[in-house]
Structure formats: structure tokens, C-alpha cells
Design a protein around this nucleic acid. Structure first.
Lengths: 131, 131
DNA sequence: CGCCATACTTACCTCTTAGTGAGTATTGGA
DNA sequence: TCCAATACTCACTAAGAGGTAAGTATGGCG
């Protein structure tokens, strides 16, 4: 994002999709729903993402109002990332999308290709929780 | 999609986002929720999309089970596109995403940048309908 | 025969996104 | 003085999505 000033699409649906669809954004958000995290924690939680890309995704989400960035002037430095209310408002949405993704995989016969981890099973936990 | 055989992401949430986030997919789906459409109708409904890209998006959605393509062997040829049950199951989801997009725009002070059309106001119609 | 409508295909180009690897900044403490 | 820890930043590259413009296929019809 050399130019974070570029406008989001004018159609609400496109705007929403644009804001949440980055390679790692949903996964990052999922972890932030759990509470604020330091960059180094996120690096550990997402070992497949390089630091540069991680920061890039976080900055875009910060710019789009989904994530709050708080700097603690210490040595060594410390920066906390957390979900804003707007970001938190995506939680039910991300969970139901996750559920839809599982349905989609099962209807297309790809269910066995799904990974099995906290995020993959998040929607189950949610439906158990809410039942 | 020279290679439509490539696998979708293993995380359900990523899979779902991958499947619905193409430049025009949500908009196309919105029109298909209304009933099946010929390619020429879609071309008229989406004047900003070139035919190539339109077909591309439709084919991807067909491959991903969201859209059904029916060929009528006539002259001139006729092809109908319609939403499958799986595609239709995205309707509430797309509508709520649309609502979220409007909220996002208003919270970021971009509300005046939103366009004003059927799709932009779809979620309103839905909430009116459901109230 | 040549034209029309419809639904594509193809070649090519551009712009965005993601990814790699190395470098920078800060400052307390050995 | 130099190192360690943390959080970046930069230059470059690769892949992919989307866009433009032109071409193909079919078969009825004047």
C-alpha cells in the first residue's frame, strides 16, 4: 500500500469484500478476536506469513478501521494489535462464512481436503457455544 | 482459469472468501438471485464488464458450484445462467455483507461515496421485507 | 453468397498482490 | 563498544487477476 488513499469501491458489497479479502486478513482477525496480540505473537501464530506481509495486512486493516495499533515506547519496542468494534462486528460473519466454506467443501466432495485446526473448526465451536 | 483444477484453500474461511471474491462475482450473483439470465442480459446488466471477464467469472462460479449453465441448441445460440442451491445459499450472506459495507462506509465517513442503485440498497429492501 | 445475432476464444498487456531477503532504528545492558 | 530483541522498511521478483480488442463458430435468412 504505497497509496493507502485510494478509494474503496462504491458498492457496499464490493467494499465489504475488498476490505476483508486479503490473503491473511481473515486468519489474522480470527486471532485478534481472541484478544490483542503483539506482532511477535502474530508471527508465531502465522508461521507461513512473512513479517513484511503480516505488517502489510495489519496496516491495511488498520487503515480500513478493523484493527487498532497501539505503540508502547519501551526497549525492546512493543506494539499491540487489536480488533476495533468494527473489526469485532465481523466475527459472526467470519464464523458463518467458515461454516459455509465447510458446506461448500462437503458439497463438492472436497471435505477431506480441509485442514483441521482451531480456525477450521471455529464455526463448530460457535454453533456448540450458541446451542 | 486455464487450470480450473487448482485446489481451493484448506481453511474453510479462506475457501469461502476465495470462491466469492472475484471482481464481479457478488454483483453477478445478485442478479442471478432474481432468476436465470442469458449472457446477453448479464452483459446489459453489467455494462462495465467486458464479455470475456463476464464469462470468466461465470465459469469460475460454475466450476465452484455456485452457478448453473444451461445450453439451448438454437440459432442464434442461447445459454442461460442461474444460481444453484449452493449459490442461492449465499443470498442472506451477501445481503448482510452489503449492510456491513454500508455501516463501514458510514463509520469511516465515506457514506457519500457509496453509489445508489438496486444492489447498493439491496440490504435495505431485505430489512424492510423482513421487518 | 454474405450478413446477422449470440456466445464464446485468443493473444496480449497492465496493475495489484504476495513473497524473499536484506537492511534500519532504538536503547538497555554485558 | 557491541550485541540483543523487537518492529519495522526497502528493493526486487513472481504470479495472478482483470482489461482490451480482435477473431471464431453456428446456421437461418435475404
Amino acid at each position: 500500500m504505497a497509496e493507502p488513499l485510494k478509494r474503496l469501491p462504491a458498492l457496499p458489497i464490493e467494499r465489504a469484500l475488498k476490505v476483508i479479502s486479503g490473503r491473511w486478513k481473515a486468519v489474522i482477525l480470527f486471532h485478534l478476536f481472541d484478544g490483542s496480540k503483539r506482532l511477535s505473537e502474530l508471527t508465531r501464530l502465522l508461521p507461513d506469513v512473512s513479517q513484511k506481509v503480516l505488517i502489510q495486512q495489519l496496516r491495511e486493516m488498520e487503515f480500513h478501521g478493523l484493527v487498532h495499533r497501539e505503540i508502547f515506547r519501551q526497549v525492546p519496542p512493543r506494539v499491540d494489535y487489536s480488533a476495533t468494534p468494527l473489526g469485532l462486528s465481523l466475527e459472526p460473519f467470519i464464523m458463518s462464512l467458515c461454516e459455509w466454506g465447510r458446506r461448500h467443501a462437503s458439497e463438492l466432495g472436497d471435505a477431506d481436503e480441509l485442514s483441521d485446526c482451531a480456525l477450521a473448526n471455529a464455526c463448530e465451536r460457535v454453533s456448540i457455544r450458541s446451542s
